[in-house]
């Protein structure tokens, strides 16, 4: 008996016509799930640090402080005296809240200190000082 070799070569290609559909499906998924930060904040030049670690973004509430000492929480410029009541409300909503300082490196420490006193008052004790990544070899 002789085996018959298949001569039908028509269906040997992987069908790629649905690739576009798959790509669009994934695209829609990623567009829907992506979360863009809706906070404009203030323009700051972050300090550089080597010991930087990653923060949990979902728990973070940002405080922007620029070079001139302006404080911005949720895109509202606030005086340092209102930090405590605002943060008290935030902590009551989320007890695991981490307060991230996005502060310019040339900001006088006085402003940061006033804000930290407000945070202590509001019991928002977990803070996070945002920094720029510094590669050990590239220092000066």
């Amino acid at each position: 008996m002789q085996f018959q070799r298949s001569t039908d070569k028509r269906n040997n290609d992987i069908p790629t016509s649905s690739m576009g559909d798959i790509a669009f499906l994934l695209l829609v998924f990623f567009i829907v799930t992506v979360v863009f930060t809706d906070e404009a904040g203030l323009v700051v030049k972050l300090p550089r640090a080597e010991a930087g670690e990653e923060g949990v973004r979902d728990l973070i509430s940002n405080i922007f402080i620029n070079k001139q000492g302006m404080i911005s929480i949720d895109d509202v410029i606030v005086p340092s005296t209102s930090v405590a009541p605002i943060m008290m409300k935030k902590v009551s909503e989320n007890p695991f809240l981490i307060v991230a300082f996005k502060t310019d490196k040339e900001t006088p420490y006085r402003v940061v200190d006033e804000v930290m006193e407000g945070l202590k008052e509001a019991n928002a004790v977990k803070v996070f000082f945002n920094t720029d990544m510094e590669l050990p070899g590239l220092m000066y």
């Binding site: 990653e54 923060g55 991230a100 977990k126 996070f128």
Partner: peptide, 9 residues
Amino acid sequence: DEIGISLVL
């Protein structure tokens, strides 16, 4: 990504 130094007051 959030990179920084964490601290507990």
